[in-house]
Simulated assay, not measured.
Amino acid sequence: MLYFVHTAIFVGGFLAALNYSFSFILIQLTGFTLATKQPAMTAPALAAKMHKVRDPEALEKLVDEIVHLMRSQFVAVLGNIMAVVPTMAVLALGWYFAFGSHVVDADKAHYQLHSLSILGPTPFYAAFTGILLWLSSVAAGWVDNWFVYHRLNSAISHNRRMTFVFGESGAKKIGLFFRKNISGFAGNISLGIFLGFIPAIATFLGLPIDVRHVTLSSGGLTGSMVSLGLEAFKTWEFWLAVIGILVCGFLNVLVAFSMSMFVAIRARKIKTPERELIYRALRERLRAHPLSFFYPRDRAAEVNLITKN
């Protein structure tokens, strides 16, 4: 609905931030996952396995952990696209049959395809969005630590007003609810603010900065294609946008994960020789089992064998 609301730049950014934040929280509360969003524990999980990188067995476990995390992110990207594309198509078609007009007009649809093209600034915007995804995970971790440090779970559970209104068991459930979800709330709200406000601020300042998130871009592309019709599938404009979205997903994941890994390395004070061991082990895994980044290792080995034969 925000598409039809014409407001000042900052008001539009604020509304977009609210829309994104609410949508991301809804995804969280319904048990789904937003693709490319780094969990708050990514960096700590990596740091925990970096204590003995000179030990071959420990290094192997670290590489396994990195591969597992990367694979989960790529699977989340695929799952998001598979969910968003048909959902957006149904909504766009439903809107058309209900109101006799497309959600996205033809001019906006062509602009959307052009903006997602791999030949444009999409890779740069996608990498920048990866940094924002990482920053949201930092915010999530900080708020989670703050919540635990100040024992807010206990404070909510034993608050007089809370126990008076909701009862002791109700107050305890509310405390546990926030303890379980506060990290996700912080990450989703901060990400929504980043994705909504930063383009508005950049436009106001005249900076060539925008965001490209694979899930949101997939929805935008689908809405545009419903508007343009089947003939648009035969155009290079569409296929360049598809490639742009695939690259967008890859860079969203790669940059966000790389930032988390950088934090883990700095936290463990890993020196250059040990870093080289990690990078070399990752390169060897990528060379020997490239599909393990997308399939579990046994399954990847089977696929590699089938491919060779």
Rank of each mutant, 00 (worst) to 15 (best):
A83W: 00
Y295N: 06
A300E: 04
L15T: 10
S137C: 10
I118W: 01
A300P: 00
R266L: 12
K52P: 00
Q73T: 03
T307V: 10
Q112P: 02
A139W: 00
S101R: 13
A139S: 14
A58Q: 10
E274T: 14
A8I: 05
H68Q: 03
Y149M: 11
A301Q: 09
I189M: 05
K180S: 10
N159D: 15
L254Y: 12
S154M: 07
A109E: 07
P39C: 07
P290L: 01
Y125V: 08
L93P: 04
R280L: 10
T36Y: 11
K37G: 04
L34Y: 09
K37Y: 05
E65S: 13
M162N: 12
G206L: 05
T122Q: 13
L132H: 08
G196A: 10
H114S: 11
P123V: 13
L26E: 09
S227V: 02
L205M: 13
R280I: 06
E274A: 15
K234S: 14
N145M: 13
F177E: 07
Q112I: 15
G79H: 08
I201H: 00
G175V: 05
R179L: 09
H110K: 14
R266S: 13
A202W: 02
S292F: 07
L93N: 12
F99D: 07
S72Y: 05
Y279E: 04
V104F: 13
R212C: 07
L207G: 10
R71V: 02
V63K: 03
P121D: 15
A127Q: 06
G220I: 10
L228I: 11
G141H: 07
V53I: 14
G244P: 14
L135I: 11
P56H: 04
I278R: 08
I131C: 14
S23N: 11
H114Y: 12
